[in-house]
C-alpha cells in the first residue's frame, strides 16, 4: 500500500501561503502568517539599524540619507501595510478566541479588511 503520499508533512508548509481553493478564512490565515514573518524580519533589522544612534550623529544621519532611496520607501510602506493587516486580523482572532463574533466571523473579517483599506489609504496620503 503506497501510503507515503497525501499524508501530513512539514514539507507542505508552502500550502499555508497558497490558499487556492480555500475560503476566506484560509486567505486570512495566509495573510496573517506572511505579515507575521515580514514584520519579524523588519523588527530585527530595525533594532540593528537603531544601534547606529549609539555611534553618534555622523553614522545615524548618514543612514537617514540612505532611507531616501525609493526601494527603501516602498519597503517602509509595505511594513506599515503589513502592520495594519496583521493588527486588524489579530484583533479578529482575539475576538473569536473569546467567543465574540464567531458566528459571523466571515463578515468580521470583511469588515476589518475594509477598515484596513481605509487606514492604508489615509496613511499613504499622509506620508507620501
Amino acid at each position: 500500500m503506497n501510503t507515503t503520499r497525501n499524508q501530513p508533512s512539514a514539507r507542505k508548509f508552502w500550502s499555508w501561503f497558497i490558499p487556492i481553493g480555500r475560503q476566506v478564512g484560509g486567505w486570512a490565515f495566509a495573510l496573517n502568517r506572511i505579515t507575521a514573518l515580514g514584520l519579524t524580519l523588519y523588527l530585527f533589522l530595525h533594532l540593528i539599524v537603531l544601534g547606529l544612534l549609539a555611534q553618534g550623529p555622523g553614522a545615524y544621519d548618514k543612514f537617514l540619507v540612505l532611507t531616501e532611496n525609493p526601494f527603501i520607501k516602498l519597503g517602509e510602506w509595505l511594513v506599515v501595510v503589513a502592520a495594519i493587516l496583521h493588527g486588524l486580523n489579530g484583533i479578529r482572532i482575539v475576538l473569536t478566541s473569546f467567543g465574540v463574533g464567531v458566528v459571523r466571523q466571515r463578515q468580521l473579517f470583511y469588515g476589518f479588511m475594509i477598515v484596513a483599506v481605509f487606514a492604508i489609504l489615509i496613511f499613504t496620503a499622509r506620508m507620501y
Binding site: P8, A10, F13, R33, A36, L37, L39, T40, L43, L47
Partner: peptide, 22 residues
C-alpha cells in the same frame, strides 16, 4: 514596546515551528 513586540513575535515564530511537528 520592545518587550511586548519581541515576546509576541518570538512566541509566534515558535508557534509556526510547532505547526510543522518538529
Amino acid at each position: 514596546f520592545l518587550i511586548t513586540v519581541v515576546t509576541h513575535s518570538l512566541i509566534g515564530l515558535r508557534g509556526i515551528l510547532l505547526d510543522m511537528n518538529p
